[in-house]
């Protein structure tokens, strides 16, 4: 059974469709001058300790309710493999797997990951150093240039196959459209995913 995150189960969902649903976070096209400059900040509140399993290790950390998962990973745990490209749920650079499903970790509060299993790009390679097949395929197919979107692309690509959304190239393109690549590596990203999909089927 392919695992499908609830928000991807709707047919025809795309980055742009998805964004309409998250315009509160994305920041509306400002009408009031002050609002356009605001950072959509949240008030502080007392920190609490949460526990989550990150890349197979149980981690306890102290976070405020407003702390996002990506900031907990990067700033609290010092795991900087996961990148921030917008902090607004628009680019997919921060994609991680949360209980096996891909999420934008900048749109996910750390407290929502309490007790959850989180997999980041740092958790993919075998401890002996062997790359995950998707990592190897990205390297071989030159599926990046600057590499900044790459951790998110790779997490998303793994989920794309797991969900059963890698049937043909058109489907891959559609289900990888939540991950922007400004360098324009898209054709090579699709080639990498096709290669991994085929080797898994073979």
């Amino acid at each position: 059974m392919p695992k499908t995150p609830p928000d991807l189960r709707r047919p025809g969902v795309s980055r742009r469709g998805f964004l309409q649903g998250s315009s509160v976070v994305a920041g509306s096209l400002g009408i009031a001058a002050g609002a356009a400059q605001a950072q959509d900040s949240m008030p502080s509140a007392e920190a609490r300790t949460i526990t989550m399993n990150v890349n197979g290790k149980v981690r306890s950390l102290s976070v405020e309710p407003r702390t996002t998962l990506v900031e907990a990973l990067r700033d609290t745990l010092g795991m900087t493999g996961t990148k921030i490209g917008c902090n607004q749920g628009q680019c997919g650079a921060c994609t991680v797997l949360l209980n096996g499903m891909r999420v934008n970790s900048c749109l996910t509060l750390a407290v929502m990951a309490e007790g959850a299993e989180v997999v980041t790009v740092e958790g993919l390679a075998d401890p002996n150093g062997d790359l995950h097949p998707m990592q190897a395929a990205f390297a071989e197919n030159d599926a990046f240039q600057c590499g900044y979107c790459t951790p998110g692309q790779i997490m998303s690509a793994i989920a794309c196959i797991d969900e059963g959304h890698a049937g043909d190239e058109a489907e891959i393109r559609e289900y990888m459209s939540g991950n922007l690549c400004r360098c324009g590596a898209y054709p090579n990203i699709v080639a990498a995913i096709v290669q991994v999909r085929d080797s898994q089927q073979g």
């Binding site: 795309s14 980055r15 742009r16 964004l19 994305a26 920041g27 096209l29 356009a36 490209g85 917008c86 607004q88 628009q90 680019c91 058109a170 891959i172 393109r173 559609e174 990888m176 459209s177 939540g178 991950n179 922007l180 690549c181 400004r182 324009g184 898209y186 054709p187 990203i189 699709v190």
Partner: peptide
């Protein structure tokens, strides 16, 4: 500038290419 974010400033996504 109005569409100052990476959703409303359109750049190609994978499906566009």
């Amino acid at each position: 500038f109005l569409n100052a974010n990476i959703a409303e400033y359109l750049v190609p996504v994978n499906a566009d290419i």
